[in-house]
C-alpha cells in the first residue's frame, strides 16, 4: 500500500516499485483506486481501465472503480449473476447503493485484496500487488473499512469478508504500508499525522518511508557563502550563481524537513533524488527504480 499527501509522487513510487519487482522476475499487479489513471501512461503503456492489462512483461495495471468493483463483488457474494442483474441493475437500487457510506471503498478494497489472494493452478496469481492508494485522508477511509464493518455488522457474508480482509491487511508477512512524502513542510506534517493514525487506528504494518524529490547538496559551505555576492554579478556568472543559490537554499530546507521526518517517523527510509526532468515518463520511473534498488528502505543509523 503506497500513500501520502496529494502530489508527492505516490504514482511514481508505485510504478518504480512495480518495475523493480518485474525486473526481479515477479508477476506484479499495480492497482490504482478510482483515479485519473497514471501508472500505465507513466510506463509508456495505454491506460488499462477496469480490465487488468499487461503494461510490460510481467507488469500488469488496473484502475479499480466503484461500479466495476461493485458488480464483480456483488456477483461473487450473491453467487448468481441473474440475481445480481435483477436486483443491482435496477435503477432505483443503483441510486440507493451510491449513498451507502463506505460501500464504494469496501468493494474497491475487496476487489484489490481478492486479487492479492487469488490463485491460479494452485499458485498465487500475483507475486506482488502494489496499491497506488488515494491521498492520506481517503486512504485511511479505504483501509478502515474492514475494521469499521467488524465493529458494526453482525454475522453474515459481509462480516466474513471483512474478517479475511482485515486479517490480510494486518498480517506483516503479507502486507506493508509505505508513506511517500516530499522534504517540505505540509507533506512532512501530513506524513507524521498519517503515520500516527496508522499506528493508533488502522494497525496496518508500517514498512517504509520514501522521501521523494530530494535536491542534492551540491555546494560546500564556502561555496554557498560566495554565491550571495556572486549572484549580483553580470551575466553569465550572476544568473548561474543565482540559480545555484536557489538550489542551495532548497537543498538546505529539504535537509531540515528530511531530518524532521526521520526523527518523527522512525521508519526505514529511502531518499529519492530530485530528477532534473521536464516530462515524467518511463525513463524517469526507471531512474527512480534504480535509486530505490541502490538504497532500499533502511532503518535510521
Amino acid at each position: 500500500m503506497v500513500t501520502g499527501k496529494g502530489g508527492v509522487g505516490k504514482s511514481t513510487v508505485s510504478a518504480a516499485l512495480a518495475v523493480l519487482a518485474a525486473r526481479a522476475g515477479k508477476r506484479v499487479l499495480v492497482c490504482e483506486v478510482n483515479a485519473r489513471e497514471r501508472i500505465a501512461p507513466l510506463l509508456g503503456a495505454p491506460p488499462a481501465g477496469a480490465q487488468i492489462r499487461e503494461a510490460r512483461p510481467g507488469l500488469f495495471t488496473l484502475n479499480v472503480t466503484p461500479p466495476d468493483a461493485m458488480r464483480e463483488y456483488g456477483i461473487m457474494v450473491l453467487k448468481f449473476r441473474t440475481i445480481y442483474d435483477a436486483v443491482f441493475e435496477n435503477r432505483l437500487v443503483r441510486h440507493f447503493l451510491r449513498v451507502i457510506p463506505s460501500l464504494a471503498e469496501l468493494v474497491m478494497l475487496g476487489k484489490i485484496l481478492f486479487e492479492a489472494k487469488s490463485e491460479e493452478r494452485g499458485r498465487p496469481r500475483w507475486d506482488v500487488v502494489i496499491v497506488d492508494a488515494p491521498a492520506t485522508g481517503h486512504a485511511v477511509q479505504l483501509l478502515r473499512v474492514p475494521s469499521a464493518l467488524l465493529d458494526t455488522v453482525p454475522a453474515g457474508p459481509l462480516r466474513g469478508d471483512a474478517e479475511w480482509m482485515q486479517a490480510l491487511l494486518l498480517d506483516p508477512a503479507r502486507t506493508a504500508l509505505a508513506i511517500v512524502t516530499l522534504p517540505e513542510e505540509m507533506p512532512v506534517n501530513e506524513a507524521i499525522d498519517l503515520d500516527a493514525q496508522v499506528r493508533s487506528e488502522l494497525g496496518v504494518p508500517r514498512a517504509a518511508l520514501f522521501v521523494n524529490a530530494m535536491p542534492e547538496a551540491r555546494f560546500t559551505h564556502e561555496e554557498e557563502a560566495r554565491l550571495e555576492s556572486l549572484a549580483g554579478e553580470p551575466p553569465p556568472l550572476g544568473p548561474a550563481a543565482a540559480a545555484a543559490r536557489l538550489q542551495a537554499l532548497r537543498a538546505e530546507q529539504a535537509q531540515r524537513y528530511l531530518a524532521r521526518a526521520r526523527a518523527a517517523l522512525d521508519l526505514p527510509t529511502t531518499v529519492l533524488p530530485l530528477l532534473p526532468v521536464a516530462e515524467w515518463g518511463a525513463a524517469a520511473v526507471e531512474r527512480i527504480a534504480d535509486a530505490i534498488a541502490a538504497a532500499p528502505p533502511e532503518p535510521a543509523p
Binding site: 437500487v93 451507502i100 458494526t152 453482525p154 453474515g156 457474508p157 459481509l158 462480516r159
Partner: peptide
Amino acid sequence: GYVAKTLARFTGQAALSDL
C-alpha cells in the same frame, strides 16, 4: 421485499437500519 432482502444480504442489516 425481495430487493430489500437481497440488499440486506449484501450490506448487512445494521447498516440498512442506521440508514
